[in-house]
Each structure stands twice: as C-alpha cells, then as structure tokens.
Amino acid sequence: MAPPYMGILHSAFWTLIFSMPVFIVRRLMQSVLVLCFMSLLVFVGVYAIGNPVDILINPQADQADIERAIAALGLDKPLWQQYLIFLKQALAGDLGKSFAYNIPAIQLILERMPATLELALAATGMAVFLGIPLGLWAGLKPDSWPGKLIMTGSILGFSLPTFWVGLMLIMLFAVELGWLPSNGRGPTTELLGIPVSFLSWEGVRHLILPATNLALFKLSLIIRLTRAGTREALLQDYVKFARAKGLSSTRVVGVHVLKNIMIPIVTVIGLEFGSVIAFAIVTESIFAWPGMGKLIIDSINVLDRPVIVAYLLIIVSLFILINLAVDIVYSLLDPRVRISEAKG
C-alpha cells in the first residue's frame, strides 16, 4: 500500500517542474547583481592594499622600471577606469590574464578545479556514507558502548584543528608507517575530458589522507545531526504508528525515519560542500594538493587581482548553484515546501 502522502508529492513535483523556469530566472537575476557587487568589492579591496609590482619587481629595478611595469599592466589608471575596463572585458567573457602566471585567470582556475572537486567529493562522500550509518547507530542505540564511542569520536572530530590532524596523519601514516604518500596528487587519467586521479591505485593512495582530513569535520557534523534527528523521530507518532502496524524495523528506520531526518542533513551537506570547495585551503596546503585553494592563497600573496576576482566570482556562482540544488532537493523531500517560496 502506497503511503497516503504519495499523491501530494506527485502534485508538488509537477508544481516544481512548472514553476522552475520563473524561479531559475529570478535566481539568475539576483545572482548577476551579487556577482557585480562582489567584483566591485574585490576591486576596491585589492586596490586599497597595493599592486603586484611592489611585490614582484626585481630588487635591482629602479624607479623608472617600477613605473613602467605599473603602467604596462594598466595599474596606473584611476580605479573607476580600471573597473570599467574589467567590466567591458568581463561582458565579452574575458576575466583578464593573471599577472603572475600570464595565463587567462579563468583557465588557471578551471585547470585547478578538478583536483579540488575530486578532493571535496571524496571528503563529502566519506562524510555522508560513514556519517549517516554511524549517526543512525548512535541514535538508535544511544546507550550502547559503540554509540557512546561514536559520539566521543565526533567530539574529537569537531574540536581538533584541521591543520594539526593533517600533520598527525602525515606523521603517522607517511613518516612512521610509510603506508601512504605524504603529499601531492597521484597520476591523473582523463574521464569525460576531466583529469581525475581516483581511477588508479596510486591516485587513491594519494587521495586517502587529504580526503580523510577534510572529511573529519563534516563527518562529525553529519553524525551529530543524524543522531539528533533519529532520536527525535523515534519519539514521533508516525514512527510509533508504523511500528504498531507491524512494519519491520529496517523499513521503519530505512524509509520513515531516514526520509524525515534527511531535510536538515541535505541542507548542511549542500552548504558544507560549498565551503569544502571554497575553503579546502588548509588541507590543500598541508598535503600540497594542487587545487584552487592553494592558487587563491598564492594569488592573494602577490595581489594577483584577475585571479582573485575570477576565483571569487566562480565561488559565488558555485554557492548560488549549490543553494539552488539544495532548494530543489529540499522541496522533493518535503512536499510542504513550495519552491516558489524558497528564498535565495
């Protein structure tokens, strides 16, 4: 027998499909405004700090050399002119060339993106596939010793700083035991035109430590969310009713409980995925993982404005996309939520 709310889900689904274009167009318009504002902020910010010539010019250069280099990069123009030039080129799809790399900024970021995405996906996958079962266990059997152990572990995962855990992982598994490589990304192979490293054993070996390090915090977060949700759901009437009807325990937990506790978890996974991509910086530097996080730090250090602007624009776009995806999944999971009501 189909659950009674199946019909509602159905109609919600169709409403969703029909209202989607309007919703997406409105979202996109908001996004363009956000992106413009963002680029302006970064422009003003980097301009206020200084220019890359002061940092990168060779020590023997004299005053004339410095002025010439600043002028050659167009950094002698007033800020508003520089911004207008940027806008004009940006509208034509050109976000400028990196000062330090002399390569289009977008290309620079996109070539680093697969590495970061791979790391972020591996870490998120680890967090989800370990976190939900462990959290369920801890929620279903809170007083058993495994349940207590899981919760204690999650406290550690929460409170230990990433850089320290990373160093300890390297010291233990790479330096002392010699089981795994201490840093770097393994050899890559092309998958649908994207270079990935997880298809080879060597690549996986390189991925394990950084992904674990990055996953630890999210794992703890998901364990705690799942446990809290499970404990709350177990007390609800529909669970009691399902049990009273004689449904198997697997079905009660696997379908009814899990589905209802997924809403906050999906939201958090979505948001955390964005932040994992944007802020994998610490893990990437400790493990010398050639991703975007390392690039942005290097670029900020030399005030490589085109890269900083392009990076932030891409990250903002990513967040917008992830939020959109979360809203859609959310409305599929909870038929009471209409997508038109979801706020950007």
């Binding site: 330096v175 201490s182 400790i286």
Partner: peptide, 18 residues
C-alpha cells in the same frame, strides 16, 4: 621539482622518503 611551499609538508615529504 615538486612545489611544496608549506614548510611542514616539505619536511614531512623528505622524512617520509617521498
């Protein structure tokens, strides 16, 4: 030539034999 700006990563990689 590996690019390893993080001091700890560089030293650890030497210690680990990488």
């Amino acid at each position: 030539l590996r690019i390893l700006p993080a001091d700890t990563a560089r030293v650890a990689a030497l210690l680990a034999g990488d």
